[in-house]
Design a protein around this nucleic acid. Structure first.
Lengths: 147, 147
DNA sequence: CCCGTATCTTGAACGTTTCCAGCTTGCGTG
DNA sequence: CACGCAAGCTGGAAACGTTCAAGATACGGG
């Protein structure tokens, strides 16, 4: 708890044999803040911590982090890619049809919910991704106001 | 069975108060052939039935059809949008991580599988979309050959 | 402290999708 | 059966998110 976020990130990176660089620490710090952020938002937040980081560096870092299992990439249909820090607990997401807001949904059915590779046409399945679609509280009110 | 595909399409369109146009009939005909097609593929197939159809018309038609429930839009992360004719039986999809191939998976757990809006942060959920990720038979062999 | 290489920067390009203005067409009306 | 309105199509163009390429930089082992 007393360790700055930067040091935690450095440890995580080193544990996977990855180089510890300023952009990576900044991105990890931003992701640690929680939420489901677009690349754009991450880049902006990173630039408040560092003076200048190229957009491509952010893309590259995010790619490396998600490959290393330190970040998770989610991409609801019709939205640009988003990244979150929460990994390893295969939780799912609710996406608002109106505003695109995303919230986490814990897996209800225990470990692997619908992951039953039943007659998947010969496919070898290694992950089941569940996306719930609906309306967030704010957009529910907005819609109710229209009626 | 004796009705040409075009007439079936016309009936479907008229039933929802939509205008019956050449591009719409052609797109419906293509989708009736089955599969999960990209806009590009649909446009090409349509152009073998009609002399010329603009790309924007295809986008527009597909948007109208999916809004009307005559087509379903699926968009696995990292892939362009795809469309399929099968609607109303909320089945799911397996996507190959290597080649992007898509296959249908019937819903195993009865009607609505994981659709349990348990503590979805106040969201009103109306659909649960499940995407399985894995390797198709072809890419399994290709990977095995590499080892 | 030095070197090799992974990483970052800069600049550009790519493919998908959407926007816009104007013309064509389907289809209810008289 | 002709008319007129609006939905729908055409064509050109551009926006968007993302990725690629070449060179400069800096991390970390020796």
């Amino acid at each position: 708890m007393s360790e700055p976020v930067e040091d935690q990130g450095a440890a995580l990176l080193r544990a996977r044999g990855m180089r510890v660089t300023r952009p990576r620490l900044a991105v990890l710090g931003v992701l640690a803040g929680g939420g489901h952020l677009e690349v754009d938002e991450i880049a902006s937040a990173v630039r408040t911590r560092l003076d200048s980081v190229s957009t491509q560096a952010v893309y590259d870092v995010l790619g490396a982090l998600s490959r290393a299992g330190l970040a998770r990439r989610i991409e609801p249909a019709g939205s640009p890619a988003r990244f979150e820090a929460r990994t390893g607990d295969n939780h799912h997401h609710v996406v608002c049809r109106a505003c695109g807001a995303i919230a986490d949904v814990d897996c209800v059915h225990g470990a692997a919910p619908c992951l039953d590779p039943v007659g998947a046409g010969g496919f070898v399945v290694d992950e089941a991704e569940v996306t719930f679609w609906g309306l967030c509280p704010v957009c529910q009110q907005a819609k109710a106001a229209d009626d």
